[in-house]
Write a protein that binds this DNA or RNA. Structure first.
Lengths: 198, 198
DNA sequence: GCCCTCTTTGGATCGCCACTCCAATCACGC
DNA sequence: GCGTGATTGGAGTGGCGATCCAAAGAGGGC
């Protein structure tokens, strides 16, 4: 229900219909709705983390770890919104742990490793949250992806080029823009910065 | 109302009481509640951005810009939650523009400047969203900051050291941890990474 | 001073939501 | 076959955002 209709489609009423049951049955198993959402998000991420790579060189392993989370959230935007609301869920512990170990293997000194890991996790979650927001706008608009992007481009084109030269220039690059690629560039920037800490 | 009681304290009912008016008056000026929230968030950020520095060297100016947004969101957590839900608001245009120009001044080649700016914006918003989430947990717990942190530390201490050695080690550093400092370390990592692109 | 028009306001009302509560039912050890 | 705790269904509660419209205000033309 979350994947097909977004967060707003998952109401307890709709869930009782889908499961042909009542509220009592649901509330016997989960504390409240946010508990339900959090558990569902954990489930998705647990699936991703189980297929983690450990034996490659740290740099590519870190990239794989980050892009794994990105792809999972890209496929299930509601997970991104959920983790932006409630970080430090059990499932993210695995992610954080994986990043920490790989930074160790990468040669980051113990003193700054926690800050570096936190920075990387924050970046990944930040992109995830924004992707989730974009996806929500898309599914909420009622239109298909193509016309939605056209409308968005039209809006951006109206930005005053005199006041916002950089933003205006950015809009011209919107066509050749790929979220996943930009995310990877960001990961590489942080990895390059972390390398200077060695 | 947002600053004192968080997002959940701002209901339209409570607002009509506070302003001693009715729904009609409010809905005549704003489209809906999210419009109200977004406008309020814009207001806060506009105040921060107006005091931006342009004439210092790009590195310190970028740090100042980033930390300005961080501090504003730290003081008003609901702004962080709002921007994580709806990025690309007018107020963030100023931030994005400022980052872009400073990256230009910093010597980042045009080709990667947009990706770099996007990365930094995502990072700042990611940290902001997480800070907002933490603040929400704090105000929602009903306890004061000290006992809340003690409870949190207790929870983290229960993490299995065998399965999560890195996370477990991180908890021991929780005492000397400062969100703002860690944020700045992250910005510096980003800047170091950006330097390699020059 | 009066009327007309457009703007602004108040509040009753609607529909939907998460959540509570409890009687009824089920599963299973003895 | 009985008893007890786990599980289920669904009516009911209170609060929410949002709508709607009659009433009140503001201001211009004559």
């Amino acid at each position: 229900m979350l994947d097909s209709g977004g967060e707003k489609a998952l109401t307890l009423r709709a869930l009782t219909v889908r499961l042909s049951t009542g509220y009592g049955a649901i509330y016997h198993h989960v504390a409240d709705k946010s508990d339900l959402l959090a558990t569902a998000a954990d489930e998705v991420i647990a699936g991703v983390m189980s297929g983690a790579v450990d034996d490659a060189d740290p740099r590519t392993a870190l990239r794989a770890l980050a892009v794994g989370l990105f792809d999972a959230i890209d496929a299930h935007p509601w997970v991104g919104a959920e983790f932006s609301r409630r970080p430090w869920r059990p499932a993210l512990l695995d992610f954080y742990e994986g990043v920490g170990r790989l930074l160790d293997a990468f040669g980051v000194p113990e003193k700054v490793r926690f800050d570096a890991a936190g920075t990387l996790v924050n970046y990944v979650l930040g992109v995830a949250a924004q992707n989730a927001a974009n996806a929500r706008l898309l599914t909420g608009s009622g239109t298909d992806r193509k016309t939605f992007l056209e409308n968005a481009a039209e809006q951006w084109a109206q930005v005053d080029p005199g006041r916002y030269p950089f933003v205006h220039a950015a809009t011209t690059h919107l066509g050749e823009h790929d979220d996943r690629e930009q995310f990877l560039v960001g990961v590489d920037i942080f990895l390059a910065g972390i390398s200077t800490l060695r």
